[in-house]
Design a protein around this nucleic acid. Structure first.
Lengths: 207, 207
DNA sequence: GTTTGTGAATAGTTTCACAGCA
DNA sequence: TGCTGTGAAACTATTCACAAAC
């Protein structure tokens, strides 16, 4: 099934598979069947097989998927093998939590820079990252950072997004609860925490 | 188009529309067309009309949607009109940020209780919420709380989820990067921050 | 025997185009 | 005229079932 467009949903699931693969690999497991990986991750086995099939032959019939190779492949597809760097803008409550967040490392990420508008925070170091003045954002141009994380109040989110795009950022993870307009070449993923919580009651019985 | 099953994707978008409607309403606007609301939120007008059409006649041809009524309707559909309460488990970096998070109020939410395993945190108050001992989780039974927010390390997430379900929680917002098994009647929405960041490089040109 | 890879069938979602109402 | 509501068409994604590979 090569030479196909990869469904967006497949791309969304690849990090899930990667996490499962890394988890098992760390436990000393060498290979896994779609059935057991599915069981571990709470998805369906045929979904995994179909998803992997878009990228070529990952597995061995009768055996399963070799974990080391699988991890390498997914990392390459997602372009995580280049150790992408991110710049955080907004070191408030959420921003600080993100700086301290242990989960990025698994995927080979690093928050390599942090900026804030609050002069009292500028110059201090948090989790090994120096907080710089937002007016000096231009500095990151030469640092090979191409992901931006927006953790500022809604009112300044659009402005910060524009500034980040202007200094060469190619992808944005946005925690502000608003739509952000950027050139089409820039990918934005918005995480709106309140919004996700807001659709939970819909699914709850009676109450 | 009444008497239809509501698509999940429509439910996912309702909070987006609600946010837009509240935003405009606060600016004194009284009604809005699908075209301008779409423009504000970065979606397509026909998507909005189709989504609303599942619930009956929200709008007036030639005029648009009356904001006050729209807000009331969406709140009712999502069951936000009952002022749902949530319990937070895990008051670490992320949990603290969630307690301080201003965005929940717009949707009528309240974090009404917080629990942690760390004895040093227990008894203290953060953003007006008392931090209680996780071994006393049973206390929430009588408090009409039916949403749980899990912000604990991955290793204890499944255990906490089970405990929450056991004390009557009907919906979970999970920030741990793992699959959580619960009875089918309980809805789980997982926000895996690292995972969202991890698929960003895939969409970035060359780099 | 076990497990993959995948065409075909099914299900779900988005987009369109326009009739009908204010 | 302006805008909604909605069938129908187009598109996208999931599920199935089984031949081929080990």
């Amino acid at each position: 099934m090569r030479y196909h467009k990869i469904p967006d949903e497949t791309v969304r699931r690849l990090p899930v598979y990667l996490r499962g693969a890394i988890h098992l690999s760390q436990q000393g497991v060498e290979s896994v069947s779609s059935a057991s990986l599915a069981d571990l991750l709470g998805v369906k086995p045929w979904q995994i097989r179909k998803d992997f099939s878009y990228f070529g032959d990952f597995g061995t019939p009768g055996v399963g998927y070799q974990l080391e190779g699988l991890i390498k492949q997914i990392n390459k597809i997602l372009r995580l093998d280049t150790g992408p760097k991110a710049v955080l803008v907004g070191v408030g409550n959420l921003g600080s939590a993100l700086l301290a967040f242990p989960g990025f490392r698994m995927y080979g990420f690093e928050i390599a820079a942090a900026f804030d508008a609050d002069k009292r925070k500028v110059g201090r170091t948090k989790n090994g990252v120096l907080i710089e003045d937002i007016t000096r954002l231009r500095r990151i141009r030469r640092r090979r950072i191409d992901l931006g994380i927006i953790a500022v109040p809604e009112a300044s989110a659009q402005e910060i997004a524009k500034a980040l795009v202007d200094v060469g950022i190619k992808g944005l993870l946005n925690f502000s609860p608003c739509y952000i307009a950027v050139p089409k070449r820039v990918k934005v993923i918005t995480i709106d925490i309140a919004m996700d919580l807001a659709r939970l009651p819909y699914y709850m019985p009676s109450s």
